Simulated scan of single mutants.
Amino acid sequence: MDFSWSTPLRRNGQTDLPLIPNEIYLAIFECIAPSGQPLSEQDIETFSALALVCRFFCAVMLPRVFERVVFFGNTTSNRMKAFRKTTWARQIVVNTEPAKSVALYVKECHFKDWCAPKEMQQFLFPFSTLYCRAMACMTNIRKVEFCRSFVKNEHWETMAALKQLDCLQFWYCSFIEDPPDRELSVRTVKLFGSPTSFILRPIATSTLRTLETDELAAVLKIVTARQLVIENFVLHREVFEMKLLLQVFEQLPGLESITFGFRAQVAASRFISGLSLKKLFTRLRSFTVKGPSVDPILRHDTEKLVSALCDGPGTLPSLERLELLFLTTGGPTATLDIVSDRLEGTIIPAFPNVKYVRAPYGVMSLGCADWKRSDWSGASPESRDS
């Protein structure tokens, strides 16, 4: 679409009024809905109306209105809106203007509420196919999210064609077909509440750098499918089996940042001795482990964990930040006490460049020359971030 525009003219009847600089209009639009934030339904209606005022307003408004598109599977709450979305998708597929050009404004595409009983899915498949074909024309998409949706091969094939795709998220999804052996361009993947027996091969991409999940078993399938260079790994579910986590870590020696949680009984596992950061990783900069918020870890088990983290020959000079965010028996600062006791003799010799060690209710930090302990009396374990 060709938007040739200048500063909007202003008139009162036949009288020309002073022009308002475009920068002032843009500042007003920013006050209505700050850029970078999803538009509410009311904002979309407002911006859609403003797009009809003049060419300048249209050039500014359309990219905002269409930057985030949601395709709903359950359309019972607003059938007219669903009809308009379907009509727009058909126009995109057949290269009809302005739908074809507007599709290039889309930066995020969301599939929501497509889960249905198996006997009902066949009625949704034609619409899913239509929206996939339309999404293939949205070549500037950077993020795709599936929420309570089935995922078919046509979804994977379409996303593989989106060369600008950077972030992919799955929330409570069902993978109903074995994914094709295609490689996506994504750098960030979030996988939550979506267990699967399939190997999600398209996610096992050479460009993947950040993986957030609560499905450890699915992750193990992904990291063993191909050799990956993931840098950031966040596990949002507490680990029940340390052996499984260690198998994942063994496949990812290049990790730079790790966050996970574990149950109290896991801290007592014999496999905890395998959690040697020096043996497992080569570039790790930040390591965060969270424990149960109620039950404290036995002091012996905390000491054993600290020893395991620092175990092994040589050093890990890349590590700068160590966070042990769990309570230990013996008082609210017991974990920090153990860190303080082990700092000079165990932690620093293993990690010579560590600058920050955090525990519940306090932190050990390296200043200009010396280490300083700061206790946060009265604060909860998760209430202080630095």
Rank of each mutant, 00 (worst) to 15 (best):
S4T: 11
P8I: 02
R10D: 06
Q14V: 14
N22E: 15
L26I: 13
G36H: 02
L39A: 04
E41Y: 08
Q42I: 12
I44S: 12
T46Y: 03
L50H: 03
L50N: 06
C54F: 00
R55A: 03
F56C: 00
F56K: 00
A59K: 01
M61A: 15
F66V: 00
F66N: 02
V70Q: 11
F71Q: 01
N78Q: 03
K81I: 06
F83M: 09
K85F: 05
W88C: 01
A89P: 11
P98W: 02
S101G: 03
V102P: 04
V102M: 08
Y105W: 07
E108D: 08
D113Q: 07
W114F: 13
K118R: 13
Q121E: 12
P126I: 00
M135F: 04
T139G: 05
S149K: 02
L165N: 09
D178I: 03
S185R: 06
R187H: 13
G193C: 00
R201L: 13
A204Q: 03
S206G: 05
T210M: 11
L211H: 10
L216M: 10
Q227T: 05
Q227H: 08
L228W: 01
V229T: 12
E231S: 14
L235M: 12
H236Q: 14
E238P: 09
M242V: 04
L246G: 05
V248N: 06
E250Q: 15
P253A: 05
P253C: 00
T259N: 13
F260C: 10
F260H: 12
Q265A: 11
S276Q: 04
L277D: 11
V289W: 06
V294F: 11
P296L: 06
V306R: 00
C310F: 00
D311Q: 10
D311G: 04
D311M: 05
P313E: 15
E320Q: 15
G330F: 02
R342G: 02
R342V: 06
I347C: 07
I347M: 04
F351N: 03
N353K: 14
Y356A: 01
Y356S: 14
R358F: 04
S365T: 15
A369S: 15
D370Y: 07
D370A: 13
D375L: 09
S380V: 00
